Computed example of a mutant assay.
Amino acid sequence: MTERRAYPSDLKDDQWELIEPLLLEWRAARAEGREPTTDLREVVNAILYVARTGIAWRYLPHDLPPHTTVYGYFQAWEKDGTAEEIHDTLREQLRKKKGRRILPTAAVIDAQSVKAPPNAPDATQGWDGGKKVKGRKRHIATDTLGLLLVLIITAAGVQDTNGGRLVVDELAVKLPTVTKAWVDAGYKAKMIAHASNLGIDVEVVSRGAEQKGFVVQKVRWRVEQTFGIMSRYRRLHRDYEALPTRSRSMIHWAMVNSMSHRLWHRQAGNGTTARQGSCDNGLAWY
């Protein structure tokens, strides 16, 4: 790798060691006898640079690989599922590191509306009357550590209840071990009944009538924490991707960066173990 000054978004050596085997396996399956010339670590560094700074691809610094090359890999890893596979692998490693079962048994479900780019197809965006946002909606499920389990991108006009049905459908297929979920009061009986038919008991966590302003909600704070992690990446402040599938991939790479940092941080013994909030209420076994 050509020597250059490191950017704050660059992967540390230990972070790269977590990701490298999966990308080398991906490359080996497609080598076809050709000698590779692109440094995959630098490609990932460039993707993370875009994610953290929010710049357009063509504005990548010249000491990183050409933007056409980087976007080509980003697109390929989205289409063949490599980005999601890396994400899910690191999630399993982090759950194991935290002393949890590899396959979670509980989830926290929520949604977030964000503005869409001007070049987004009309069919992929809509109007969220509650949040007063025209764009797309991110429907997610996390485990009780705040790690992403399911991510679905829809037009912002899709109601949380309908999006929640899509989320539990995917949970039932992808992670049938999940039998418990928590949601806010925006999810109605239709979604709860649908989840019950799939073997998932959904509990609504509502704000108390006496609560004013921001109040940490039992268990549900984990999904808010995940949205908070996303907000550290300027590319995710709004949905800048033309296609929803690209949006999913950018979020997966942001979470890969976050999880690899947490794994590296714990392996290297840097700092103390993350503080357990009082709202966990003994959920460490989920």
Rank of each mutant, 00 (worst) to 15 (best):
residue 4 R to V: 00
residue 14 D to M: 06
residue 15 Q to V: 01
residue 16 W to Q: 08
residue 16 W to M: 04
residue 20 E to D: 15
residue 21 P to V: 07
residue 24 L to G: 06
residue 26 W to P: 03
residue 33 G to Y: 06
residue 35 E to L: 12
residue 36 P to S: 08
residue 49 Y to W: 13
residue 51 A to V: 07
residue 51 A to Q: 14
residue 52 R to H: 14
residue 55 I to A: 01
residue 59 Y to A: 14
residue 62 H to Y: 13
residue 62 H to K: 15
residue 64 L to E: 02
residue 64 L to A: 08
residue 65 P to D: 04
residue 65 P to S: 09
residue 67 H to P: 05
residue 69 T to L: 01
residue 73 Y to L: 02
residue 77 W to K: 01
residue 82 T to L: 13
residue 83 A to Y: 00
residue 84 E to T: 01
residue 91 R to C: 14
residue 92 E to W: 02
residue 95 R to Q: 08
residue 96 K to T: 14
residue 104 P to G: 07
residue 106 A to D: 03
residue 107 A to T: 03
residue 109 I to Q: 03
residue 109 I to H: 06
residue 110 D to T: 00
residue 116 A to G: 14
residue 120 A to I: 03
residue 120 A to C: 15
residue 121 P to C: 06
residue 124 T to S: 15
residue 124 T to C: 11
residue 127 W to V: 05
residue 127 W to I: 04
residue 129 G to I: 03
residue 133 V to W: 04
residue 133 V to L: 05
residue 137 K to E: 04
residue 140 I to A: 13
residue 143 D to C: 09
residue 148 L to V: 09
residue 154 T to S: 13
residue 156 A to Y: 07
residue 159 Q to K: 08
residue 160 D to M: 08
residue 161 T to L: 06
residue 170 E to K: 11
residue 172 A to E: 04
residue 173 V to H: 12
residue 175 L to Y: 15
residue 176 P to W: 07
residue 177 T to K: 10
residue 178 V to T: 01
residue 180 K to Y: 13
residue 188 K to T: 10
residue 193 A to G: 03
residue 194 H to T: 03
residue 195 A to V: 02
residue 195 A to M: 03
residue 197 N to G: 14
residue 202 V to F: 08
residue 207 R to A: 10
residue 212 K to G: 00
residue 213 G to S: 05
residue 214 F to A: 05
residue 216 V to F: 12
residue 217 Q to C: 09
residue 222 R to W: 05
residue 223 V to M: 05
residue 225 Q to F: 10
residue 232 R to M: 11
residue 233 Y to E: 00
residue 234 R to V: 00
residue 235 R to H: 13
residue 235 R to M: 05
residue 237 H to N: 12
residue 241 E to V: 01
residue 243 L to I: 11
residue 243 L to P: 01
residue 246 R to I: 04
residue 247 S to K: 01
residue 249 S to M: 08
residue 250 M to H: 13
residue 252 H to W: 15
residue 253 W to L: 01
residue 254 A to L: 07
residue 256 V to P: 04
residue 258 S to N: 12
residue 259 M to D: 05
residue 260 S to W: 01
residue 263 L to G: 10
residue 267 Q to E: 14
residue 269 G to T: 06
residue 269 G to V: 04
residue 269 G to H: 09
residue 274 A to W: 09
residue 278 S to G: 14
residue 280 D to Y: 12
residue 283 L to Q: 12
